[in-house]
Write a protein that binds this DNA or RNA. Sequence first.
RNA 1: GGGCGCAUAGCUCAGCGGAAGAGCACUUGCCUUACAAGCAAGGGGUCGUAGGUUCGAACCCUACUGCGCCCACCA
Length: 887
Amino acid sequence: MNLAASYTLRVTQTQAAQPRELPSTWNPADVEAELYQRWVAAGYFTADPASDKPPFSIVIPPPNVTGSLHIGHAFEHTLMDVLTRRRRMQGYDALWLPGMDHASIAVHALVEKQLRDEGIDHRELGREGFLDRVWQWKEKHGGAILSQMRRLGDSVDWSRERFTMDDGLSRAVRTIFKKLYDDGLIYRAERLVNWSPDMRSAISDIEVEHKEVEGELVSMRYGDGENSIVVATTRVETMLGDTAVAVHPDDERYRHLVGTEIELPLTGRRIPVVADTHVDPEFGTGAVKVTPAHDPNDFEIGQRHDLPMLTIMDEQGRIAHTGTEFDGMDRFEARVAVRERLREQDRIVAEKRPYLHSVGHSSRSKEPIEPRLSLQWYVRVGPLAKAAGDAVRDGRVEVHPPEMAKRYFDWVDNLHDWNISRQLWWGHRIPIWYGPNGEVVCVGPDEEPPTGDGWHQDEDVLDTWFSSGLWPFSTMGWPDDTADLRRYYPTSVLVTGYDILFFWVIRMMLMGLYAMDGEPPFRTIALHGMVRDAHGKKMSKSAGNTVDPLEWMNSYGTDALRFTLARGANPGADSPISEEWVAGSRSFCTKLFNATKFAMMNGARVPDALPARSGLTDADRWILDRLDQLVSEVDELLEDFQFAKATEALYHFTWDEFCDWYLELSKVQLDAHTERAESTREVLGYVLDVLLRLLHPTIPYLTETLWTTLTGRESVVIADWPAPSGEQADPGAAERIAAVQKLITEIRRFRSDQGLKPGQRVAARLGGIAELGLDGHVAAVRSLARVTEPADGFTSSASIEVGLTGGTVAVELDLSGAVDVEAERKRLAKDLAAAEKELSGADKKLGNPAFTGKAPAEVVDKIRVRRETALADIERINARLAALPQG
RNA sequence: GGGCGCAUAGCUCAGCGGAAGAGCACUUGCCUUACAAGCAAGGGGUCGUAGGUUCGAACCCUACUGCGCCCACCA
């Protein structure tokens, strides 16, 4: 892309029917809603599969239908929007597809609680009645986040909004379930699952959080006398379901007991002692009680030794079926009761309390999960996981930042079969029918389920992640062969947090590769970190350090929030955020607003073509060269997902270079009332045009306001992404501007040291400035450093020498007795010390033959130059010191 | 128990082999007609500790210390 192209394309935009005037101040709230509506109405965000542009696509990580916008969303959406808007400007047919997840468990729990508050047991309503309520809830309260996304400025294609419970997506679920079933990749098995007694449903491994809790470790004696053995447990109540005691096969202490049976207290049962290598003879007593139906380890031991599996709890976690006095007790109640009974029987050998250990909790209901033996449907992930690993290993899918790939492999290579059934009602019902004679039939989406006496459908629904795993293609019409699917799948990039890598990304990889004949769901996985508070702490409700992005948008504007978020986004790393920083970003927006206002007040206009460089000043050439560099830099950084660095570069250019220097220098040029003033207006317009386009993906509202006013064109949303001008850079101009900046800064420092007020004009003679080729900059130096031309009666009462490349400028000032000699002496002494330190450092290096011999020539040269400069400085400063009046 | 990451200015972070950087905070002076949500000037760091490699280390290696995260069925 070159400049010519970028300008030609823009001409196709219509002239905006609005006044070319800016409000006096930047009030985001006044324009945001209106601009967003206009963008949507104009169809800018609507992808077009028939277009001849190259496609670019992102699917949104679907937020829960229960959700509202939190800072994490705002962060993730900002990044996605920056990518999407940039691609759109680059001439891609950009699709960012929005939607929501039905969030099976979350919604089920929410509506269930609502009903409970109304005094209704959801089971009484029945499945149909309950689902009616859920849909009612969804229509009324669901999807608050969608309007908040509009507020954020997300350039999503609303015409393609999807919900995981849509008919189309449900059909995709049915289709892939059937395919997996027919391929033998779905099976039913009775295993231990993570059971939530509160939800009365299985939950998946990833919904289990392990937390350190203070429990107890109780050692108790089974059997009697010679034939007794001591076992330890943190869950005394499960002894009611013990069906063995296990010891290590090589353990001499218990060898005589292996194969015998001992008495299990309180139950009247006798259980065998078995030998199993799983047991660690070093831990505790070296003997383990085995409860196959209530502990994952014990389950495996049970399988190996063909032990009975006694389920001693009901689905709500109450002791049941034991035929003991404990039946009906809650599991925690029973823990105490059983321990007390054992103590009475003198079975307790030791107790450790508190005993810290890790217990799995439901991430949903926060209660300890209960391993429970139950019949569930599983996906056999082995072959799918292999493909998912290979796709990243062979580079078809790129993980960014690359270090994160390790984590991906850790997970994908160690996947267990995936339990996909949930004992809930809200979700995709498992399409399995059972017949009266034990038949099991999987019914595809376009097939009729079997009818007749005794046939019934499985009661359970699928894990939420089952349907979200299909998201990149189910949203595009799969299983139909649609234009969208052909064009936008695989998606270009997936933007998501590293915390969701396992939950969601891997599921999409498994399902995408499987359903789409080996085509992965995305080319690149771009992982970002978590938003944290100002001190890097994790945000949580309990810590009270959460923030509300909407509040900040109200106070500082959406752009300020987005700019702050982008500025903190280093790949894969967590980003702290605080209100102060958002306020700082608002300042940036105000600065840009004022700069544009200034330029327009001074007649800045965007030229059809850049003025010939030969007619431009050094300042013009310098800022244009810097702008070219900025364009390339920002482009490369964004291509590499380096949002923070790209944003930083834009900030620095805008504020420190464009505003602080170019605008100030341009004032001098504008005052000249020559052709120079005219070309300066064009350069101002040109730089702002490019700069606003570069900033647009990050701060869309402000840039739209400024750009349309500046250019009179329709919208920056559909403007072209800037390309470097293609002009030859002029390093000479840059060097001269650097010299001018240094000269001005030195004079300002001197003035400040002398305590001169900014408004106080003093005369100065700039000796040697012409010899350095800076004579064209005298007016600028005088204006920015606030020194006037020497008039009659000028007496030099102070002078400073400013060392510049190629020589020095002697600045003589007429301070008319205003010089503070002591301050000057102090300043010079400080400079002298610095120069001497510099000299000795350089001498040390250059005196070291190892250095001069081994270091690259340019490094040695640099040091030599540094030494020369230091020497000259010392001489100059000494002369100045000598010239100062004594006393 | 395994794995990964981080320790740089008061705070939050860049830099990752050749003179210590940014934003915010701080000090001083200014309402200088784009901007006080601002301008100008300035102070502040033996780059966690101890070794090693190198002419040269914030940067590479080793150990240690302190944080953080992820995974895991130690009764």
